[in-house]
């Protein structure tokens, strides 16, 4: 069976958009993992950057094959997550959010000032190694994994922590351990997203992983809703497609984008897909 040329064209035209949907879906999952236990940790963009830079350097300088690079790309984000995880476990809410945004800004300064990262010029000429099926395979695995965890007893503990951490701790939930586990999972997912995106777009730069992307990733998960992993992914897809659907209106595009977010939060308080995880015998 061969693909008709117009469909081939169509897929080519939207290939980057399709990749972006997959990558942003992974980022939304990475956000979901921490939000699901009530942690407002905004380090996803920083973890993504670590995954992107470390994988790109492995490909460009060490000439490693992609099946080695991709799994290895989670090493740097996980290491940093463990490093910052322990001291930040005590933080919550706004403080944690800002500490993790600070991490992104510190890393940005490192990329800009250390020569191996290419400074402001970033790294370019990264070969296109990631395939669409890899991105969506990992995304599907992530959704399934988180869904299964969410339906299990662990999921109940997570929800309890989100609703009332003190009560959860009293009932025997080891809150710090969950926090650290969530942070590490978040780092793995974001690191993979970074490695995949670096290997489909041929160029990465230091300004792609700072404050603004951090907030955008948050908006993916919040807009979709944090009841289920699939809702977070849907939020990411919606916000990825939105600017493309409004291509013909460049003047008002960003404005409309903002207005849609406002309306969604005000009138769809549980996100676009506001249902909760079904669980046996609650």
């Amino acid at each position: 069976m061969s693909i008709p040329p117009w469909l081939d064209d169509l897929l080519w035209t939207y290939q980057n958009l399709i990749h972006a949907m997959g990558v942003n879906g992974l980022l939304a999952l990475s956000m979901y993992v921490v939000l699901a236990i009530g942690q407002l940790s905004l380090g996803q963009a920083a973890f993504m950057g670590l995954g992107a830079y470390s994988s790109a350097l492995m490909t460009l300088k060490l000439k490693l094959p992609f099946f080695v690079v991709l799994p290895a790309s989670v090493a740097a984000p996980v290491l940093v997550a463990l490093l910052i995880g322990v001291p930040t476990l005590r933080l919550s809410g706004v403080y944690l959010a800002i500490a993790t945004i600070g991490l992104g800004e510190v890393l940005r300064a490192v990329y800009l000032n250390v020569d191996v990262f290419g400074g402001a010029l970033g790294l370019n000429g990264i070969p296109e190694r990631a395939e669409t099926w890899m991105i969506f395979g990992i995304l599907a695995a992530g959704i399934t994994g988180l869904w299964l965890v969410g339906r299990s007893g662990v999921g109940r503990a997570m929800e309890a922590m989100r609703e009332d951490p003190t009560a959860a701790a009293v009932m025997g939930v080891n809150v710090p351990r969950y926090h650290l586990a969530a942070l590490v999972t978040s780092a793995i997912l974001a690191g993979l997203a970074g490695a995949l995106s670096a290997h489909v777009s041929s160029f990465i730069g230091p300004n792609e992983y700072g404050f603004e992307p951090a907030v955008t990733i948050l908006s993916f998960a919040l807009l979709g809703g944090i009841g289920t992993p699939i809702a977070a992914v849907a939020g990411a897809w919606f916000l990825t497609l939105l600017p493309e659907l409004m291509r013909d209106l460049p003047q008002v595009r960003l404005t409309l984008n903002g207005v849609i977010i406002v309306l969604a939060v005000l009138f769809l308080p549980r996100g676009l897909l506001g249902w909760r995880m079904g669980r046996k015998a609650a």
């Binding site: 706004v94 948050l218 919040l222 008002v252 409309l256 977010i261």
Partner: peptide, 24 residues
């Protein structure tokens, strides 16, 4: 109940709209 997250989100959307409307 989730005022903290929601207000972050709504002001994020709001400020995006405001800045870009002002620029336009």
């Amino acid at each position: 109940a989730t005022a903290e997250l929601d207000s972050l989100m709504v002001t994020l959307g709001g400020v995006l709209a405001l800045y870009s409307a002002m620029t336009a």
